[in-house]
């Protein structure tokens, strides 16, 4: 009768001195893999200009319709970029299709994964925010 009880206590003691598997989120955050697919972000080229040319391919490929691109022309003849670029993170399923479709390497998924918010609209990222990410 007492045997199994002691055995259980022993197990507890053993665990107390082991390194824990869980971490104290959100005080501590876990490192994710190099190839992790997190939030989409927009990139700039070496001159600091947005790489995206507003071709709408990411918008088209996105299976959950999370992306909206609004194009605008520039001064030069072959110049197009997004006036607005919106990713609704609440819709994004982090499939990475956009990154794969992009002919300009302008969009990629970073390693951020947090999505908990009190309000949905906070998760609608606009161009500036996507460039900061």
């Amino acid at each position: 009768m007492i045997g199994p009880l002691l055995k259980g206590l022993g197990k507890t003691l053993e665990q107390m001195f082991r390194k824990p598997i869980t971490i104290e989120y959100p005080e501590r955050k876990r490192e994710v893999s190099e190839r992790f697919r997190g939030h989409p972000r927009l990139l700039r080229d070496e001159n600091g200009r947005i790489k995206c040319v507003a071709c709408h391919l990411c918008e088209t490929i996105c299976p959950s319709k999370a992306i909206t691109v609004e194009p605008e022309g520039g001064e030069e003849m072959h110049d197009k970029h997004p006036r607005e670029f919106i990713v609704d993170l609440a819709r994004c399923i982090f499939c990475g299709f956009c990154q794969e479709a992009c002919p300009k390497g302008a969009i990629m998924l970073n390693r951020k994964y947090e999505l908990a918010q009190y309000r949905r609209d906070v998760l609608v990222y606009h161009k500036e925010k996507l460039l900061e990410e």
């Binding site: 040319v53 507003a54 071709c55 391919l57 072959h78 110049d79 197009k80 002919p103």
Partner: peptide, 11 residues
């Protein structure tokens, strides 16, 4: 040819 299909309206 400029091959700017992502920009070109004809793409």
């Amino acid at each position: 040819h400029p091959l700017d299909c992502p920009i070109c309206d004809k793409g």
